[in-house]
Design a protein around this nucleic acid. Structure first.
Length: 284
DNA sequence: CATTTCACCTGGTGGC
DNA sequence: TGCCACCAGGTGAAAT
């Protein structure tokens, strides 16, 4: 489900519900591969802490956690400092949901965090490609993405990411160490809006093409965030609500359908092991 | 070093 | 109905 716009939507929704809420109960399923930090240590770390805020970095949801002993926030107390982080990557099919404890537990629910407000935060992930990590900031560095943020990157920095590289531009867009947050949907959609074929060598794009791509990517991501992300199959936000950006897709999963700009059938190829969709006329 | 392929998982869809 | 092939929002390790 989750690329930058979906992760941003979920992080905002979770933040709205759990800010200032305390974790009073932790249940983790027995799927060791899900937990980058061993489940026992993760459960111990989470228990009793307060959510200070929840935000997105790349495709990661970062929960800033306060110490176990923390007075309720008041006007007279300075903003508490985060001393731990819970980092959630949703993989392909992961969801974070805020529910009541009585809500039916969906299949493939792997985490349930009971909160002092009476609500519950749940992590559900059928394919189990997601990853959960706990960081004690007294012992380890705060989480930082390896790649640049596509929403705020400058022209110069964007162009320098691709200089001297021979790999296809679509493969470069998907590489999280260059840009963080772009996945298969938004790579295909931004290349369509920039008029660039996915197989073009990234190092051979002109300055003008790179700038078109940077702006197309930013616009596509911003509009997708405004529409709550793309619900291709079962993606929903933290409140269980679907997004609407799938209605705006021009190429993604539109193989054989007429191009919205020129009516030519959209083509599908395999690139970097991923289904890749483009218009053979609009994209050169 | 840069780049490509594959394994990791479950579930949905469509053909026979 | 069953069985099978193929496809799906991602990524890190192994191979080239």
């Amino acid at each position: 489900m989750p690329e930058l716009p979906e992760v941003e939507t979920i992080a905002r929704g979770v933040n709205k519900w759990v800010r200032d809420d305390r974790i009073v109960d932790v249940w983790l399923a027995n799927h060791p591969a899900l937990f980058k930090t061993p489940a026992t240590r993760q459960a111990k770390g989470l228990e009793g802490r307060v959510f200070l805020s929840v935000h997105r970095t790349g495709k990661h949801i970062v929960c800033e956690l306060g110490p176990v002993l923390l007075a309720p926030r008041s006007k007279h107390v300075a903003q508490p400092v985060s001393d731990a982080q819970w980092i959630v990557h949703l993989g392909m099919t992961g969801r974070l949901l805020v529910t009541t404890p009585e809500a039916p537990v969906a299949a493939h629910t792997h985490v349930r965090l009971g909160l002092s407000s009476g609500r519950e935060l749940r992590f559900v992930d059928p394919r189990r490609f997601g990853r959960l990590e706990f960081r004690d900031l007294a012992r380890s560095e705060a989480f930082a993405a390896s790649g640049a943020e596509p929403l705020t990157i400058s022209s110069e920095e964007f162009a320098s990411l691709f200089r001297g590289r021979r790999l296809p531009i679509k493969a470069a867009l998907l590489n999280q160490t260059l840009l963080s947050g772009v996945g298969n949907i938004y790579a295909d959609e931004s290349l369509f809006h920039a008029g660039i074929r996915p197989r073009r060598s990234s190092g051979r794009l002109t300055k003008a093409e790179l700038e078109r791509l940077r702006l197309a990517l930013r616009q596509v991501l911003e509009q997708a965030i405004r529409l709550g992300g793309s619900s291709v199959s079962d993606y929903v936000d933290a409140d269980g609500v679907r997004g609407f950006f799938q209605l705006e897709h021009c190429v993604y999963l539109r193989t054989g359908l007429p191009c919205r700009r020129c009516q030519t059938p959209i083509r599908r190829i395999l690139l970097a092991g991923r289904g890749t969709h483009f218009c053979p006329i609009c994209q050169r």
